[in-house]
C-alpha cells in the first residue's frame, strides 16, 4: 500500500533540497549566465547545422526536416530532463572520496533523495521549457499528428527518462565500487549524444548495438518515431520491458555497492 505520509515527507525533503540547490546556484550569478549562454549556443548551433544539411537535401534517410528536428528535440528533452533532475550525480565523487557520503547514509531517508535528486538544476528547467515549446512547434507542423501518437510519445519520453534514471543509478553504484564518476558519466553522455539524429543513418551492426546493447534507440529515437508515426509496436513493448529491467538491475547493483562501501577519507 502506498504510504501517503511517506510520499508527502519525501516530497518536502526533495523540495527543500531543490530550493537550497537554487539558492546555491545563484551565489554566482555570472556562472548562471555563462552556463545558460553556453547551453543555448550549443543547441542553436546544432539546430542551425540541421538547417544547413536540409538546405542541400530534401530528406535524411527518408525523414523530412520537421521529422529530423523531432528526433533532435526528443534527444534534447530527455537529455535535459535527466540533467535537470540528476545534476547531483555529477558531484558524487567528491562526496565519496571525502567520506561525506557517510553522513548521507545515516539519515532516515533513501540516499537517492540526496545523491540522485538532491541537486535539481533550475537552469536546466529554463532550457527544458524552451525545448518543449520548440518540440511542440515542430510537432504541430507534422501533417499526420494524432492525439494517440502524442500520448504514446509522452509515455515513451517517460520511458526514456526511466532508462536515463537507471544509467544514473549505475553511475552512482560504480562511484562507490570504483570511485569513478566523472568518466562513467561522460561515457553515458557521449553514447547518448548519438541519439541526436535518427539511428537509421547508421549501418548494421552499429544500429543493433545502439538499440539493444546501449539502448539509445529505445531511449531517444523510439519516442520520436512514435510521434511521427513510423514505428512498430513490438519495439515499444521491448522498450518498456527493457527500461524496467535496466532499472531493476541498477537497483541491485546499487544495493551491492552500498554493502561493499568502504567509507574512504577517514
Amino acid at each position: 500500500m502506498i504510504n501517503k505520509n511517506k510520499i508527502k515527507r519525501n516530497w518536502k525533503i526533495f523540495w527543500l533540497f531543490s530550493k537550497f540547490a537554487l539558492k546555491t546556484t545563484f551565489q554566482t550569478r555570472w556562472g548562471v549566465a555563462f552556463f545558460i549562454g553556453g547551453k543555448l549556443m550549443r543547441f542553436f548551433f546544432l539546430l542551425g547545422f540541421l538547417f544547413l544539411v536540409f538546405s542541400k537535401t530534401k530528406s535524411l534517410y527518408g525523414y523530412s526536416f520537421q521529422e529530423a528536428a523531432i528526433f533532435f528535440m526528443t534527444f534534447n528533452l530527455i537529455d535535459n530532463a535527466a540533467q535537470f533532475l540528476f545534476r547531483e550525480v555529477y558531484r558524487f565523487r567528491p562526496l565519496i572520496t571525502s567520506g561525506g557520503f557517510d553522513l548521507v547514509l545515516i539519515k532516515p531517508y533513501h540516499p537517492f533523495l540526496r545523491i540522485l535528486l538532491g541537486g535539481v538544476d533550475y537552469m536546466d528547467l529554463l532550457t527544458l521549457v524552451l525545448y518543449l515549446l520548440i518540440t511542440l512547434y515542430f510537432a504541430f507542423q507534422l501533417p499526420y499528428l494524432s492525439f494517440i501518437n502524442l500520448l504514446l510519445y509522452l509515455l515513451l519520453l517517460t520511458n526514456g527518462l526511466i532508462i536515463a534514471t537507471a544509467f544514473h543509478v549505475i553511475v552512482l553504484a560504480l562511484g562507490i565500487l570504483i570511485t569513478s564518476v566523472d568518466h562513467t558519466i561522460m561515457i553515458y553522455r557521449d553514447i547518448t549524444s548519438i541519439g541526436r539524429f535518427p539511428l537509421d543513418i547508421y549501418r548494421e551492426p552499429i544500429r543493433f548495438v545502439f538499440t539493444f546493447v546501449f539502448p539509445i534507440a529505445l531511449m531517444m529515437n523510439l519516442p520520436a518515431q512514435v510521434l511521427i508515426g513510423k514505428f512498430n509496436w513490438e519495439l515499444v513493448v521491448v522498450a518498456i520491458v527493457f527500461a524496467f529491467g535496466l532499472l531493476g538491475f541498477s537497483m541491485l547493483l546499487w544495493k551491492k555497492a552500498v554493502k561493499h562501501y568502504q567509507s574512504w577519507g577517514g
Binding site: L16, F20, K23, G99, L103, I106, G266
Partner: peptide, 25 residues
Amino acid sequence: FVAGQRNQLIWDLPASDSFKLNQEI
C-alpha cells in the same frame, strides 16, 4: 554521527538552512 573531518552543512548557505532541512528529515 558527528565527525570532526566531515561536513553535513551546505557550504554556501547559512547553517540555519541546513537545520531547516534536518527539521524536515
